[in-house]
Structures are given as structure tokens and as C-alpha cells.
Design a binder for these strands. Structure first.
Lengths: 349, 349
DNA sequence: GTTTTGATTGCAAACGTTTGATATTATATT
DNA sequence: AATATAATATCAAACGTTTGCAATCAAAAC
């Protein structure tokens, strides 16, 4: 049915070793024979079998991209970046969307190994370091190049790339403080997620830097979805002493927060400040204009893929690379722009 | 290095045929031996090699998803739907994002065949029927189960699933007419795309049904990006007799249109009506509230995957299935709600 | 006219599975 | 005790490639 290298060998009247060499541009083969083989290959409509090749070469030219939420616009940009460099270098990528489900994440990781991908880019749905000792030492058991995207390695054995989330949380909160908001809340996503907890730490350290006491009732976490932002905002507003600003775990949550505020008739930014995280494309739309912390998503995707492919191709040593990008505050219309004469003392980092 | 079936055979003291049968739950094997084999397999940390298996089985349990723009929120929902059912059934999906690049599309299609995927779901970046005769007969040459998502088969040889785009264009335009807008423009995306041209036809047929002359100067096409919507809106407004409403090829374009209108200080919906297409999640956000035509994205993704997997598993005959979903008009805040006493005559369909 | 050399080509094993055909063993039947 | 039967295990081929090594062959060197 499907034409193989043997068929070509038969009609081109040579051994299939020769066919293989001809088609793969290997040296030590007569130019005429090569041409003859190439011609009959295309005549027969030959399509190399990457599976067979993968078996002998122990290389599949395939990588896995494991992410928690493809629907959050943050990730499609990442995926595009990863894909663009992967396809440029002849790699294909398995999309593994976990919906924040750790079981699914593990199932995918297993499947990727069985399918013999050459490497994996993963945004773990849980913070690996703090989860260590639980059943999440799993990444260390995978004997493949891995780059951890927006997460941390428990062993230092993996490359990783992320924005400086702590710093991001810090400058977001600092901005709210300087804009004159007095009671700044935090509405996070998954409490167990690495980026979320780093952002929270940044939030706390900013408050501390400004001599503002941390009020645990103002710190909430649930999910990285807008419904969650809406619901938590609603309950924060019911507090005896409600906040007048909020820093959220990501932009999607912030959108939920804004929706809630609008419904309650609370004016943003006059009476309430909101800053998000990620700078997804929709945050910049004129109707939204969310103040947020920017992550260069497409670039990060590209970088992640480049790091991984370098490791795969032995161009860089495994697990050596730590890439931390600098976050940037994008001031838009959900925060006031007042400059208070604070004496800014940032904690040394 | 990696442990194989042979290693297991050696320590479990049996042939590797037996190991294979034990591990795959094949009948005709002693319960004790099976247990012994399973135990040693897990002791040795055995991971089946799906590549080797794929080679003999001629099945990879892998499908390809070829889409033009992962960044448009329409597609991540599709991808999630596809992935959820695929992973449920033990399949992995290759994400192939083409950025509307036909060359890249072809490269991907070739790669997918070489990697011996079991089937393909594709949203072609170009209308297959009208492009026939050009170099785009390519899909017909692929000897694999294919479901065409939001596109049409040239031969009828492939299953396809889509919303009724013509009808969608019709009801969108009809709504604008009934709301009392007088000069209704069309701002499309890729002119060569199937869904776009169907939507345009629907637009035209609605105008005709209401006895409104089609003004070609009001019909524009460019890209499915918001920048494109912005630019085309801007140029339409410079017309001697500019439109007072627009139906766009998708929601993303509509967002660009809205941005332009806002910048020009044109009031929506009082002085200008906008209706989009897709009902991406952001269209429903309180700050946007875009009137649009809904496509049940996640469901469509699921359906596409189910159809494909059924074909793959021989549960349904190849290419037999045509699924056309009914579009729904979602009226929000970018169109007026006036009811004119028109005598509605829809063209018979 | 041998021998040496270098360029081509072919052989056969290997990659890690699955599976039909066959062989072995244990159990049941006579 | 010999035979038939059923249950279990092994053999070996197949899937479609790549590649080290050996073989062939013509031209060059002696």
C-alpha cells in the first residue's frame, strides 16, 4: 500500500541502503545514482516513515508542551512562540493542556515519554519546590531535556525560564501604594502555583517595605479564572473594612474583578485600583485598559523552545540555563496616577 | 539504558512474546506469570516504546490539529475540545499553527503524514472549493481520515463540521437592518477563507432579501486581525457616503472596529452598529458587550474529535459525515434594539 | 600484468515491539 | 498407560528505517 524504501530500491535497481543514503544526502554515493533514486522516489510518491526512522535513530523530532490552560490568552502566545521555533527546526509539538488537573498532567507526562519525545516544556500546575515530598518529584525521574516554564526545578537539574514574579508582584503593589490606595488586597489564582505564590510574596514585601501591615483577611486565592476573581472581589467587598485596591494573580482574574466592581457601581480608578499580571492582549484593548505587569509572551515561548532545542542537540549543557526576565509595569486606566511623596525603600533582593 | 521488553523477559525468565502478551492483557497466559511479569516490569521502571509499537501496529494514537491562528481565542477553545476527547481516548495531538501561511500549512501536512498520525483535523486557511485547480487539491491526496473544520471538502471525501456561516451572515445582517441601520458595511478577514466568503454571501443575501442594493464600496476584506478591522473601518469612514453599521468577519475584527469608532468619537450603538462573529469569550465581557453570532466552540472541537476518532476506529464510514450547526444571534450592546415594521422575507435556503 | 587505491554499493544487524504458527507442558479422557 | 485435549509458552517474522563493515569494481600506480 504505502511505498517504502524497498520499493524504491526495487525499481531503481539498487539496495535499500543506497536508497537511504541517497535520500538523506549522505556522502559516498554516485551523483547519477542519487539522482535516479530521488527521481523514482518522487515518482512513486514516497513519504519517509518517521516512526521507523525514530526507532533506529532514537530521535523523534517531537517535543511536548505541557500547559495548564490553553484558553487563557497568555498561553496561546507562548504556544505560538514555541511552535514557531520548533517548526523552523523541523520539530513538531504535542499540545498537552491539563486544565490544572495534576492527574492529567502526570498522564500526559507518561504519554510523552512513551511516545519518545525529544524534550518537554512544561508549566507545572503546582509549585514543585513546596510540593516536594509529595508525589511531585516526578519531573526528576524523567530522563529527558526539560525546560520548566514559569516554575522552579526542585533539583536545579532543569533549565527554567520565567519572569521575575516576585519583582512583578512588588512593583505592582508599589504602584498601587504610590497611587494612594490605602487597603490593598491580593486576589490570587491557584495557591499552589509557583508564579502565584511568588507574586504574593512580592506583594507582601512591597507592603512591608512601605511599612504597611499585612492583613491576612485581604489575601485570597482560588483559581486563575475570571469567575473566581468576581467571586473573591464580591466577598472582599463584604468585609467590615473592605479594600480600595487589588493586585490580582493574573489578568483574567482582574477582568472578573472589574466586572464585579462595575456591577457594584464602584468607580475605577477613582475609588478603586486594580492591577493584573501578564498583559494579555485584551488588557490593552481600549475598553479594558487594565494596568498590569507585562510578560513578553511570544518571546518567552521562543526562548523556551530555543533553550530546549539547544539542550536536545547538545549545543548547551543540560539544566544549566536559568533565564529570568524583568517584568514591566504597564500603567493604563485601572489605577490612578498620583505621585505621593513616599520615601521609597525597596528591600534588597 | 532504557529498559525494554527483553530486559523484562530476562529477569522474569520467559520469552518476550509472553511479556508483550502479559503487559497488553492479551488472553492465553497464566495468571501467575502475568503477575510476575507485571511486577518485574514496574520494578524495572519499564516504559513501553510507543514508537516501536507504532511501527508494527501501523497506529500511532496521535492526531494532528491544523489551525490558522491559535492566538484568536476562537481556536484555543476548539483545541481544548479536541484535546479533551482525544486524551480521553488515549490520543495525543500535534498542534500545527499556520499563522495563515499556506506554505507552512503544507509543510505541516507533510510532516503529519511522515509522522504517521492516525488522522487530521484541519481548518484550511483557504477555501478549498474555489481554490481548486490551484495547488490546493492537496487534501485529497492524503490517505488518512480527515475532518475539515469550518471549511469544505472539494470531493465530498472528507467529513466536515462547521456552523452555517451563510445563515450566520444572514441573521447578523438582518439584525442590523431591523435595528434601523441604513448603510451596512462588511469588514471581512481573509477573502480566500471559506468561512469568510460564506458569511459575506449571507450578508449579501440578507440585503437582497430586504430590497437593499449591494454597494461594493462597503464590502472590504483583509485579515482576521483587529488591526485590519481598525484600518478598514477608518477607510470606510472616509467614504463620501460612509456606513452607519458594520458586520465583521469575526469578533477580533469587530474589536478593532470598535477601537476605531471610539477613537473617532462615534457613539455605539446609537449612531453606529457593530456585529461580529464567533462569540469569543471576551465579546461577552461587560466592557465589550459585542453583539455577535455564536459558535459553540468547545462543543465543536469535541464533535470534530469524536467524528475523527470514530472514523479512525472504523466506527463510522469515512467522509460520510456532514455536521452543520445552527448559528445563534447574541444581542448585546453594540447594536440598537429597535423593531421596525419590516415585512421580513427571508430567502428560502 | 599485478597490485594498490579510492569510490561506490551491498549485506545484515539493529531499533523495540506484536502476533500467527508452533512447540511444550499439564490435565482430562479413554 | 496411552492418548486426546486444553492451556500456556516460545519462535521467528514483520514493521521501515539507518549504518558499520565488507564486497565490488574501475582506475591508477607500480
Amino acid at each position: 500500500m504505502t511505498v517504502t524504501i524497498k520499493d524504491i530500491a526495487r525499481v531503481a535497481n539498487c539496495s535499500y541502503a543506497t536508497v537511504s543514503r541517497a535520500l538523506n544526502n549522505k556522502p559516498g554515493i554516485n551523483a547519477q545514482t542519487r539522482q535516479r533514486i530521488i527521481d523514482t522516489a518522487s515518482q512513486l510518491g514516497y513519504q519517509p516513515n518517521a516512526i521507523a526512522r525514530g526507532l533506529v535513530m532514537q530521535r523523534t523530532h517531537t517535543i511536548g508542551l505541557v500547559i495548564p490552560d490553553i484558553v487563557n490568552p497568555f498561553f496561546p502566545e507562548i504556544a505560538r512562540g514555541v511552535e514557531d521555533v520548533a517548526s523552523d527546526q523541523g520539530y513538531t509539538v504535542f499540545l498537552c493542556n491539563t486544565n490544572w488537573d495534576q492527574t492529567k498532567e502526570n498522564v500526559y507526562l507518561k504519554a510523552l515519554q512513551e511516545k519518545r519525545v525529544d524534550g518537554i516544556i512544561i508549566t507545572p500546575s503546582i509549585d514543585l519546590v513546596s510540593a516536594n515530598g509529595t508525589n511531585y518529584a516526578y519531573l526528576n525521574e524523567i530522563n529527558l531535556p526539560i525546560v520548566i516554564f514559569s516554575g522552579q526545578s526542585t533539583t536545579g537539574g532543569h533549565s527554567h525560564i520565567e519572569i521575575d514574579n516576585h519583582r512583578g508582584g512588588f512593583i505592582a503593589t508599589k504602584h498601587l501604594i504610590e497611587a494612594g490606595y490605602k487597603r490593598i488586597a491580593f486576589i490570587g489564582g491557584r495557591e499552589s502555583s509557583h508564579s502565584n505564590s511568588e507574586r504574593l510574596k512580592g506583594y507582601k514585601s512591597a507592603l512591608t517595605s512601605y511599612g504597611i501591615a499585612i492583613d491576612e483577611t485581604l489575601i485570597t486565592n482560588h483559581d486563575f479564572y475570571s469567575e473566581s476573581g468576581y467571586a473573591l472581589m464580591e466577598s472582599l467587598l463584604k468585609l467590615p473594612n473592605p479594600p480600595d485596591a487589588v493586585f490580582t494573580g493574573n489578568d483574567i482574574i482582574a477582568l472578573g474583578v472589574l466586572e464585579c466592581l462595575q456591577k457594584k457601581g464602584i468607580r475605577v480608578p477613582e475609588d478603586f485600583g486594580v492591577v493584573g499580571f501578564d498583559n494579555i492582549i485584551f488588557s490593552g484593548y481600549p475598553q479594558i485598559q487594565l494596568t498590569t505587569i507585562s510578560q513578553p509572551q511570544y518571546l518567552m515561548g521562543k526562548l523556551a523552545a530555543e533553550i530546549l532545542l539547544n539542550e536536545i542537540n547538545g549545543l548547551s549543557t543540560k539544566g544549566v540555563r536559568k533565564t529570568i526576565l524583568e517584568p514591566e509595569l504597564i500603567i493604563r486606566k485601572t489605577t490612578r496616577k498620583l505621585n505621593f511623596p513616599y520615601n521609597i525603600r525597596e528591600k534588597s533582593r
